[in-house]
Design a protein around this nucleic acid. Structure first.
Lengths: 265, 265
DNA sequence: CGGAACTTTGACACATATCAAAGTGTGTGG
DNA sequence: CCACACACTTTGATATGTGTCAAAGTTCCG
């Protein structure tokens, strides 16, 4: 059923403390110098805008490792050594950060064309778990190689800076959301954000199915799952959206946007 | 009173929409190729560990512009063109992010040795206001020059990556704090974080005075200022800290740390 | 000295959490 | 293919933490 010529399944590594020799790309994974044509990665792999032909040739040197992650499996875990950035080719991931006392929280959802793993650059270990919410494919980009290459190609360097800075921006936005918004506003922003990102990838802006549970949404938004569920119901009663389990249709996008304003101080 | 030979005061620019020609470093500011000896910057300016003598000479090419910011003045404002990163030499800053609907929130406090302005890299405009909470001095580091230089010096490049990644880490931590902690836990973390940062700079770990108001702390932690005040009082009653207006003494650091655990789910 | 900004404290309101129970969907093994 | 178990979702009743409003106290600064 699976095509093993160029893709392999990453084994579902259980995280054992101290076990970090067996890193993310086991020897078994086939290396494929993909041309990346047809890949819908938008952020990291495609600084083509600013690249000369020569630079593109250099870029071809960088060996991307593609791999499949099955639903429920971890792409990486807290404490794993940081060696790769991951560009999501397709599928859907959640990132989970941990605090010392065992508390954890979903810090983000990643879909096709987005980059995972930036959290690991400074500590050289991953600071969170990344788990696939559906069967997914990623390109593993060796960070050391990327650094070398960026040293030669200023456009790539700039592009990478921007990717990181955009992540900082995104988190600023989340802090605003978590720090100063009520449940309705948080969920409205969440839905509008998903809608925008699906649209940017050519999917419907108004109908999509959620890959995550109410509990995961709640964790991400700093709410309990019951509150998420109630707020979904409320939006539905108000005619803003239609919900049926994981299927969501946005019926009044402008109305959702107004939710963000109506409680503004 | 002010020594104008090498330092000048940045004029207090009121932000006018569309006025971004007059950027952060007006012609009047004296350029000083500081040797940075004695400067206690820890993050950006001093990747000396990995630098050879030749690299250090190259680094000397990068012209840092030092400037003073008076209490209450903005180092940069939302929408300003991004040209510089700022290393805080001394003093104290708050960063304020804005949302479309006029809502705003303190997203961070910066003290000596920390870097300000990373939010501007991707959008090429600053995404928040940075305001001095006391008379302060910064080194303005031209980002374009830094990029060029980093192109030549891999160690600097890596150092800069790490600086950005550390900022991402910090914001993950804030998301956890805002998303899953109650008021006591948030304030305990805040105090312990301040304590640690002061200690790292050679100041007392147990006694310091807050540069920010209760309202600014509240904005940062996603709480109202009354709640901040009440929680301070509660900690004092419990013997964890002593508070007198802006002066805080940490009397039971371990006890504060236990606050973080006692409500852990 | 007077006023402004900030802080503390109290009383009460309200949003969200908590606890509980029923309902729905989904996948698996017989 | 059905039946069962499990995970997830919805909804209700109640509890609680934090927000809101108000007033008095403190500090700071002109």
């Amino acid at each position: 059923m699976t095509n093993n010529t160029s893709l392999r399944v990453l084994p579902n590594r259980r995280h054992l403390p101290g076990n970090d020799a067996a890193v993310v790309a086991p020897a078994g994974i086939a290396q494929c110098h993909t041309a990346c044509s047809g890949c819908n990665l938008r952020e990291l792999c495609r600084p083509c805008c600013g690249m000369t032909r020569a630079e593109k040739e250099i870029a071809a040197r960088l060996a991307f490792v593609r791999s499949r992650i099955r639903r429920g499996d971890a792409l990486y875990r807290y404490g794993d050594r940081f060696s790769y950035l991951y560009a999501v080719r397709n599928g859907f991931f959640k990132s989970i950060a941990m605090l010392e006392n065992g508390r954890e929280q979903v810090t983000g959802f990643s879909m096709a064309g987005e980059v995972l793993g930036l959290d690991g650059v400074a500590p050289e270990r991953h600071a969170c778990n990344a788990v696939a919410l559906e069967d997914s494919e990623v390109c593993a980009i060796p960070f050391a190689g990327l650094q070398e290459l960026a040293q030669e190609i200023p456009a790539l360097q700039r592009h990478f800076y921007k990717t990181m800075s955009r992540e900082i921006e995104r988190e600023h936005g989340m802090m605003l959301q978590l720090g100063s918004m009520n449940a309705e506003e948080r969920l409205a922003m969440f839905l509008l954000d998903l809608s925008r990102r699906f649209a940017a990838r050519g999917y419907s802006r108004s109908e999509f199915h959620l890959r995550m549970t109410r509990e995961e949404i709640g964790s991400y938004l700093g709410l309990k799952f019951e509150t998420v569920s109630r707020t979904f119901s409320k939006f539905q009663e108000e005619g803003l959206i239609g919900v049926q389990q994981k299927f969501v249709s946005i019926q009044d996008s402008a109305g959702l946007q107004q939710v963000l304003c109506r409680n503004a101080n």
